[in-house]
């Protein structure tokens, strides 16, 4: 039996055990279970899927000895930064409770509690890119699965502003190692994979462009297993 048949069989087996009503358990956001079907298709990933993948990455990073000084943020983090940037003239970022989270991350990096923060950004509602801000190295790593692309100017502007709120050093931009997509559906997967590989290269090798469909199915199995673990744990608690 080849590798592909094995993962397809795993998906079939797990689909047979999961009811498609209700919410996904074991993740920060309890999204409807039917949203998981996207992993088994060639549909674009939405922020629902990116957040689930980032949750998985955060768990992996938290378990890893080298990951203790790394923070993985969800999709909302970028929205906070954009919001703060838009209101920078009013000085609300430094004061408002609304910005407690990005301010907390910035201060933790500034004080050396964390070394780096990784997150994913949506561009123009058509494309996902990954970012890792590394304070000790004073570098921003930018991962774009579209070959030949460079950092989006608006992202550069917003991130440079945010970093200037927490550091006096000048940061340099560097492209992250990432698999280039040879289709029009895989940026969501490959941007996440690029970030995961950047943070934990041994645990997350780069996915070859020819294997993105299998990788989507493997992630579906991983998410379903986590969901089932939490559902069964809950039953034990009752």
């Amino acid at each position: 039996m080849n590798k592909r048949n094995t993962i397809v069989d795993d998906v079939r087996a797990i689909l047979a055990t999961v009811p498609w009503a209700g919410l996904v358990r074991g993740f920060d956001n309890g999204e409807p279970l039917h949203q998981l079907a996207t992993y088994a298709t060639r549909r674009w990933f939405s922020d629902v899927h990116e957040n689930q993948l980032l949750d998985l990455l955060r768990l992996a990073v938290g378990r890893h000895p080298e990951g203790r000084r790394t923070e993985v943020e969800n999709i909302a983090f970028w929205k906070f930064l954009v919001n703060g940037y838009q209101k920078r003239a009013e000085g609300t970022y430094q004061e408002a409770r609304h910005f407690l989270r990005p301010r907390g991350v910035g201060e933790a990096l500034e004080r050396g509690i964390w070394d780096q923060v990784g997150f994913i950004v949506n561009l123009h509602n058509t494309h996902w890119v990954s970012i890792c801000v590394d304070f000790p190295k004073s570098k921003i790593f930018y991962g774009d699965s579209m070959p030949g692309s460079s950092a989006d100017p608006y992202i550069v502007e917003v991130l440079n502003w945010w970093i200037s709120c927490h550091s006096e050093h000048a940061f340099t931009w560097e492209m992250m190692d990432i698999t280039y997509q040879n289709d029009v559906v895989s940026c969501g997967l490959l941007s996440w994979n690029g970030l995961a590989h950047h943070l934990l290269p041994n645990e997350f090798p780069l996915i070859p462009a020819s294997e993105v469909q299998d990788a989507r199915l493997r992630l579906l199995v991983e998410i379903m297993n986590r969901h089932l673990d939490h559902v069964s744990n809950q039953k034990h608690c009752v």
Partner: peptide, 16 residues
């Protein structure tokens, strides 16, 4: 939550 707190609202984003 306290007075003047903010709830962010967003449309779902997609990308490929």
């Amino acid at each position: 939550m306290s007075d003047d707190d903010v709830i962010d609202v967003a449309l779902e984003h997609v990308g490929g």
